[in-house]
Amino acid sequence: MKLELRALSARHPAARAGAAPAVRDLTLNLDAGEQVAIIGPSGAGKTTLLQVLACALPPSAGQLRLDSTAPWQLPRRALQRLRGRLFLAPQVPPLPPRQRVVTAVLAGQLPRLGLLASVRSLFYPADIPAAHAALDRFDLADKLFERVDRLSGGERQRVGLARALVALGPAPDGHRAEPAPAEPAHRAANTGATLLLIDEPLSALDPTRARQAVETLRDAAHSQGATLVATLHQVDVALAHFPRIVGLRDGALAFDLPAAEVTRERLAALYAQHEHELRGDVPPATLLDEGPQPVVMHCR
């Protein structure tokens, strides 16, 4: 999917009236099949930008075009069909605690299923091999029928990423989503998501799992010809695994460069007054991969 942003601004959904936009005057072009990492300090507008690209949040100014289409000018049903080609993986995946992992992963197929098939899949998962194959890419195949509340924070995050693989549709060989060099970078016939938007996918993962997750997402997106946009706090991972880096600061574009041209000086300017984030010496605020997390229940 091709992305075009022209002088785009957007406010965070929870922002008060009159608040400054979280993303402001942003102009950016991405070709179909590109893989881009967005970096920047906390509050830079990274998550808001992903919500705009996912058509979950309308711009407050400027233009957004996806495959040359202005989403917010479409009729409601056409906009819903377009959203079915987009997949947004939030930093903390919305996984009901009592849900089985297989059901959580196969939820990535729901946009391309009919209503009856979607409801049926909640109770009788039909494509168990697809869920197993996606989980296997993240070393979680043995968790297929576990309940979500019995997983660690890192495992939950990987389940959310496995859902992204399922959202892409069947892999070229039906089982694995490895890149095929002879294939074109973009497939017009892709029946799954053609734009993956991944928000901080590594916040609950150790370095080894983080590298595995990024490589798996990149390979899967490449093999399906999907565009991949990921926000990352781990600058070293972004530079090592993504060919193009977009730096955001205070909602504005600081730079848009090939990874090889992102110098220490540029990073120091981007993270000025936020050097601890650049060094990575502050633990992530999300769930850590240290065993099953308690489920909090509130009684009314």
Rank of each mutant, 00 (worst) to 15 (best):
T208C: 09
I39F: 08
R158W: 09
A10R: 08
K46M: 08
L86N: 00
V262I: 11
H241D: 12
P292E: 02
G225F: 08
R120L: 14
P292L: 05
V296E: 13
H233D: 12
V229F: 10
L5T: 05
G62R: 02
R264G: 15
A210L: 07
L232N: 11
A107Y: 02
V23G: 08
L239N: 05
Q273G: 06
A177T: 01
V282H: 02
R266E: 11
G43D: 13
S42R: 03
P284Y: 01
G291M: 05
G153F: 03
L8G: 12
T227H: 01
V105L: 07
L49H: 02
L26W: 01
V295P: 00
T47R: 08
A134N: 07
P283I: 06
G174T: 10
L196E: 02
K143M: 11
R163H: 08
D139P: 02
V52D: 00
L8I: 10
K46N: 08
G169T: 03
P97F: 06
P207Q: 10
P207D: 11
A14E: 14
L253D: 10
R150E: 10
P111V: 12
L278S: 07
P179S: 04
V105I: 10
A252P: 05
G192T: 04
A252D: 09
L288H: 11
G84P: 11
P294W: 05
D149A: 05
D127S: 12
A272D: 14
R150L: 06
P284R: 00
T286F: 12
A213Y: 12
P97S: 07
R11F: 04
L86Y: 02
L122E: 13
Q99A: 12
G153Q: 04
L205A: 04
Q35I: 01
D206M: 13
P13D: 10
D199Y: 04
A272W: 09
R249I: 02
G43S: 12
G62D: 00
H298L: 14
A56F: 10
G45T: 06
R209C: 11
K143S: 12
E146R: 14
E146F: 14
A104G: 04
D139R: 13
L151D: 00
R11T: 13
R120P: 00
L113M: 15
G84Q: 09
Q109C: 14
H298T: 13
L217N: 04
V166R: 01
D136R: 15
P294G: 10
R137T: 08
L144R: 03
Q80C: 12
N190A: 14
V36L: 15
L82E: 04
H276D: 14
R16P: 04
F145I: 00
A182F: 06
T48I: 09
L278N: 08
A7M: 09
L30P: 03
F242P: 07
L161P: 01
A78H: 12
V159F: 02
D219R: 14
R300G: 10
A164Q: 03
H12C: 13
P181L: 02
R158T: 08
R147W: 03
H12S: 14
L267G: 11
I39R: 05
A19D: 15
V102Y: 01
L267D: 09
A238W: 09
R266Y: 00
R83A: 09
R176K: 08
